[in-house]
Design a protein around this nucleic acid. Structure first.
Length: 512
RNA sequence: GAGCCGGUAGCUCAGUUGGCAGAGCAACGGACUUUUAAUCCGUAGGUCCUGGGUUCGAUUCCCAGCCGGCUCACCA
């Protein structure tokens, strides 16, 4: 009886035999260290530079060194062979010659496989075909690969320099489940995650420079709040109590403002027990920052500056291309009021329209489940259908209805609205911010409204957080706060259409 | 949760109007001292996602399930 894994085990068997042969020859197939002095891409570039200066030959200083990486290509010609070595900077070709290495070392090549980590000592030169290459004077196996990597073949167009990968590793499910293999064979994937790191670093630098203090607040919380979402529930054994994984950082960060830490931010995982699709992963990264004495107008300006800085860090310009759309982050971003935008789309004032009319219009658009939706939810649905998709360039939507925003301050001169904005880019929500509600009595009333919704069956309505009210009673200064979905920001700036392509290990169903 | 599409060799894919399962790359053996998707000769490799059903016979048709992708719903 044959099994799918038998073929793989045949490959493994062949490699295990090589492992034994290596050990028989006294070669340690899993080394402890290697003294790396050169890297692939910069050493090739450096060689070309020196060559241009007429200075490349016979010079051990510029051309020699030790490279380490994964062997991703191998072309044997009998008494000589070419290999491609890939490290984190790129690829460099290695040339092995029997008369340089000696018979003993040269025959070791027979025991190498694609995917093996090797260290090479040698000198750069240019081949007859013009390729800058390391002539190997010595090499060591650093780690044997027992399982074949799904390496594609990379073809470089001589004229355009474009790289075409043949075959390769494309199956999305396999790539997400075996991200290590995905990263090992798909350089573009590594680039996306490097960009992600640059983006997060740029966020930190921007806020640090403005005097914001990075903090860590609890991921395990006795009550969850700060957003509308269903939580993950867990249990602490020694305390014998239920704890929730946070759905937002908001209420803890504002407690810190009460404590006098007047500019704070956190970049952290939030957890929401909701569906999974290309915009949602159950654990995702959220940036939240709060600034005392600021209102949402100040925060809009801050967000404009932040995004321009971050876009520049990610791609070198104050813009990006997302799924074919050119996006620019030049200040000031467009603004539209929630009610105004909706009024224009509906041809009537949504605040004055009877609830039945809102419901009828929403139903007319075929927007799913409207069970138990109040005026706020209905308006939001309508907005999402009628206005939001057109918001391609960065646009602040401002002044949301009060019932949608239990943590935002009432708008000056418009008691049915709040001082809240959301930023939309490419039709997707990227940021959410308010002038924070700092009146403990008003906050209690809003919580109680939420509790009523909860009692009526809204699983996502917020809980009354007595300790948070207590903190507000000590005094929260006027404060502006912003939340930005980091994964979506990375998607936008790296032109990835699925959140799974910007999360290293996305949540998947159990395998098998 | 719903609809559509998909799951065949390690990888990328073809194919079977129901009759012994195909290619390229990777692997294995051989030739080759400047190749680069190296080339050339040869070899081996399969629970055709799983379980039922129909049938003389199912990888193919039917049903159920699992996993994934896309769209929708949900997610302010």
């Amino acid at each position: 009886m044959s099994h799918a894994s038998d073929d793989l085990s045949r490959v493994r068997k062949a490699r295990l035999e090589k492992l034994a042969a290596l050990e028989e020859r006294g070669v340690e197939p899993f080394a402890y260290s290697f003294d790396v002095t050169r890297h692939a891409a910069p050493s090739v570039a450096g060689f070309e530079e020196r060559e241009a200066e007429g200075d490349a030959d016979g010079d051990g200083w510029a051309g020699s060194g030790r490279w380490a990486g994964r062997m991703v290509g191998f072309r044997s010609h009998g008494k000589s062979a070419f290999a491609d070595l890939e490290d984190h900077t790129g690829r460099v070709q290695i040339y092995f010659r029997r008369n340089v290495l000696g018979d003993d070392a040269y025959t070791l090549l027979d025991l190498l496989d694609l995917g093996d980590w090797i260290g090479v000592e040698g000198t750069l030169f240019r081949t007859r075909m013009g390729q800058v290459t390391v002539l190997a004077e010595d090499f060591r196996l650093l780690s044997k690969s027992l399982r074949p990597l799904p390496l594609g073949k990379v073809e470089e167009d001589a004229e355009t320099g474009e790289r075409v990968t043949h075959s390769g590793f494309a199956d999305r499910e396999s790539r997400y489940r075996r991200r290590y293999a995905d990263l090992a064979v798909n350089p573009g994937v590594r680039q996306v995650f490097r960009a992600r790191t640059r983006i997060v670093t740029a966020i930190r630098r921007f806020l640090d420079d403005l005097g914001f203090v990075e903090v860590e607040t609890p991921a395990l919380q006795p009550l969850y709040g700060g957003a509308s979402a269903r939580p993950f529930v867990t249990r602490h054994l020694a305390l014998d109590r239920v704890l929730y994984l946070r759905i937002a950082d908001e209420l803890y960060l504002k407690r810190l403002i009460v404590g006098g830490m007047d500019r704070v931010y956190e970049i952290a995982k939030d957890f929401r027990n909701e569906g999974i699709d290309r915009f949602h992963n159950p654990e995702f990264t959220m940036l939240e920052f709060y600034q005392a004495f600021a209102d949402y107008e100040d925060m809009m300006e801050l967000v404009e500056r932040l995004l321009a800085a971050v876009a520049e860090a990610a791609g070198g310009s104050r813009g990006c291309t997302f799924q074919g759309a050119e996006i620019t982050f030049e200040r000031p971003f467009a603004r539209v009021s929630f009610v105004g935008g909706l009024r224009e789309a509906m041809g009537g004032d949504p605040l004055e329209a009877p609830e039945e009319e809102l419901r009828a219009r929403a139903e007319g658009l075929g927007v799913g489940d409207l069970e138990g939706a109040g005026r706020g939810k209905l308006m939001e649905k309508l907005f999402g259908e009628l206005v939001q998709p057109a918001l391609v360039q960065p646009t602040f939507v401002v002044d949301y209805p009060k019932e949608l925003s239990p943590l935002a301050k009432e708008k000056r001169g418009a008691p049915r609205l709040t001082e809240r904005f959301e930023l939309f880019v490419a039709g997707e929500e990227l940021a959410n911010a308010f002038s924070e509600l700092n009146d403990p009595i008003a906050q209690r009333a809003r919580f109680e409204d939420q509790a009523a919704l909860r009692a009526a069956g809204d699983a996502e309505a917020q809980m009354v957080d007595e300790d948070y009210i207590r903190a507000l009673e000590y005094g929260l200064p006027p404060t502006g706060g912003v939340g930005i979905g980091v994964d979506r920001l990375v998607m936008l700036l790296t032109d990835q259409s699925s959140i799974r392509d910007v999360i290293l290990f996305p949540t998947l169903r159990e395998e098998e």
